[in-house]
Design a protein around this nucleic acid. Structure first.
Lengths: 136, 136
DNA sequence: ATCGTTGCAAATGTTTTGCATGTCA
DNA sequence: TGACATGCAAAACATTTGCAACGAT
């Protein structure tokens, strides 16, 4: 079974307090700044476990090959509209989209459909304030 | 300017002859099997150049962190419906989808929208023949 | 003869793993 | 106590880069 340790608690706390997507490294650094040292391997292991438990969402950063994690109460299937400037993200339910995807699959004889979809843009705040990049 | 070398020619030839998505490593191996040794770094450099020239499409493999490349005549923006079993993929034009995405962005005050979208499934052949995995 | 290209090996960056040690239940 | 969790360092990958040798134009 799953045991509650100091470090798991720290990680969960941090994730719950953060509305934006963070890399494993971000989490590691942020915890270090709070004085709660947690090994990077442990960070990865816990984020992975949380992802499997659907407590966090995982996406891939736009250009790079880094996974980003974010706490997420809603464990239904959904997508994200993420600000590439400040990292903030909005959950999107894909009603219309899912239907479109199924149609496309059917048209080409594909079954057992699955998909990856992420939307990236600039949120209104970042557009207005011309914020170049948000400090983590 | 761009120079045509043996190795660039080999890579382009291979890509043109392949309808499925290949990793840089696949390309490297396949060329090795043909006797046309090409350094892995060169494979990467050329695939990257081809991607910039929009001669190949790049996607990320479903679970992993590997990029996959595929020759693509059509340089307009489009998406892929890919068979997770045999790797075959179909180009999809996103008319309906693009519009939906813009609506979603607008609704939440996001601009400069961009997105990643890939569809994965089982093609009819793979479903019928119950092909477990295609040999590369 | 240039100057882009290649190949190799080393560097990078992310994520995973082995293993001895620590610790929750 | 005993199974699971942690930390560290090493391993595993995918990808990039420095640099000397090469070769297309």
């Amino acid at each position: 079974m799953q045991r509650m340790t100091k470090q798991r608690a720290s990680i969960i706390d941090l994730m719950r307090s953060r509305p934006d997507f963070l890399s494993a490294n971000d989490v590691h650094e942020l915890l270090k700044n709070t004085g709660q040292q947690v090994g990077i391997a442990t960070v990865y292991r816990n984020l992975q476990a949380l992802a499997e438990a659907k407590e966090v969402d995982v996406i891939r950063q736009e250009g790079t090959d880094t996974q980003l994690f974010r706490y997420c109460a809603d464990d239904d299937h959904h997508h994200h509209l993420m600000c590439r400037c400040c990292g903030k993200s909005v959950d999107i339910i894909g009603d219309g989209f899912e239907k479109w995807a199924e149609e496309m699959a059917a048209k080409h004889g594909f079954t057992q459909l699955n998909h990856t979809l992420e939307l990236y843009g600039m949120c209104n705040e970042c557009t207005e304030h011309d914020t170049p990049h948000l400090a983590k």
